[in-house]
Amino acid sequence: MPELKDLEHLLGPSPWGSSGRSFGEAEAAWGIQLPPDFKSVGLFYGDALITDFLFICGPEMLTEKGEWMSDYVRRGKSRTIPRPVLPDREGMLLWGHTIEGDRLFLEDMGSGVWTVSAFRRNLGDWYESGLPIIDWLVGVFGDEVAKDWMPEWPDRHWFETD
């Protein structure tokens, strides 16, 4: 089972170094505990656009993006996103997006397991991977997962944090 160090091997070090970032505000605002594997990824690579394509939410953007998407789904603006989104009760966690408009979610499968699902904008469909976030990201950046809708990655990755 892949770990954060396996993702770091593919992407390189965190653009944030070892700063004291936390998801405490989001967890308090929503009254939940976020999945631990998401928190580790979000603290390490969150609030950054990776290689001009994939954005991962971190402590700065998670609440704003989640509340916007939750409201969007609640108002019936999407027929393709099948379930509520946090902070709505029992909602999925919007954890990122691509520059092409794909929306990336984690769905609670019970027993502490959250798996990656996505609204794929260009394909106009709903995707369920069955994989936890670190497994999915290692597979994506290792060109083994989601090859039909993720780009061909360069040998070296870069981050945009502003």
Results as ranks from 00 to 15, higher is better:
Gly58Val: 09
His97Leu: 03
Gly42Glu: 13
Ile32Glu: 02
Leu49Pro: 09
Leu123Glu: 15
Ser70Leu: 09
Trp16Gly: 04
Val145Ala: 07
Ala28Pro: 00
Val73His: 10
Met150Ile: 01
Ala118Phe: 02
Ile56Thr: 12
Lys39Ile: 13
Asp37Thr: 04
Lys147Leu: 11
Gly101Met: 06
His97Gly: 06
Met109Thr: 01
Met61Glu: 15
Arg75Glu: 14
Phe119Gly: 01
Tyr127Gly: 02
Glu25Arg: 10
Arg83Asn: 08
Leu34Thr: 04
Lys5Ala: 14
Trp16Cys: 03
Leu11Phe: 03
Met1Asp: 03
Leu54Cys: 12
Trp126Phe: 12
Met1Ser: 05
Ala146Trp: 02
Ile99Lys: 12
Pro15Asn: 12
Trp136Lys: 03
Phe23Glu: 06
Asp155Ser: 14
Asn122Thr: 06
Asp162Tyr: 04
Gln33Asn: 13
Val113Gly: 00
Gly42Leu: 11
Thr80Met: 11
Glu8Arg: 04
Glu100Leu: 11
Arg156Asn: 07
Asp6Cys: 05
Phe53Leu: 02
Asp102Arg: 12
Asp162His: 06
Trp114Pro: 00
Leu131Lys: 15
Gly12Thr: 04
Pro132Glu: 15
Glu100Trp: 07
Asp37Cys: 02
Ala118Glu: 02
Phe38Tyr: 15
Arg74Leu: 09
Met150Asp: 00
Asp148Lys: 12
Gly91His: 09
Val85Tyr: 01
Glu107Gln: 11
Arg103Phe: 06
Asp6Met: 05
Met92Cys: 03
Val113Ser: 10
Arg103Gln: 14
Asp6Asn: 12
Leu4Trp: 08
Glu3Met: 07
Gly130Met: 07
Arg74Cys: 05
Gly12Phe: 04
Gly24Phe: 04
Glu152Phe: 03
Pro84Thr: 00
Leu137Ile: 05
Tyr127Thr: 01
Phe141Glu: 01
Met150Lys: 00
Gln33Ser: 15
Pro59Ile: 09
Asp88Gln: 12
Met1Cys: 04
His97Lys: 08
Lys147Trp: 00
Gly124Trp: 08
Asp71Arg: 09
His9Met: 07
Thr63Phe: 09
Asp155Ala: 14
Pro36Arg: 07
Phe159Leu: 05
Met1Asn: 05
Leu34Glu: 03
Arg79Tyr: 05
Asn122Gln: 11
Leu86Met: 15
Asp37Lys: 05
Phe105Asp: 07
Ser117Arg: 13
Pro154Ala: 10
Gly124Phe: 06
Leu104Lys: 02
Ile32Ser: 02
Ser22Thr: 15
Thr161Phe: 01
Gly110Trp: 10
Lys39Val: 15
Glu8Cys: 02
Arg120Tyr: 00
Leu4Lys: 08
Ile99Cys: 11
Gly42Asp: 13
Leu43Cys: 10
Asn122Ser: 10
Gly139Pro: 06
Lys65Asn: 13
Ser117Gln: 13
Leu123Arg: 13
Arg121Gly: 00
Val41Trp: 11
Asp88Asn: 12
Val85Glu: 03
Met1Ala: 09
Glu152Ile: 13
Lys39Asn: 03
Phe141Ser: 02
Glu152Cys: 07
Met69Phe: 10
Glu67Thr: 12
Leu7Gln: 01
Glu128Gly: 05
Asp143Gln: 15
Gly20Tyr: 04
Ile50Phe: 11
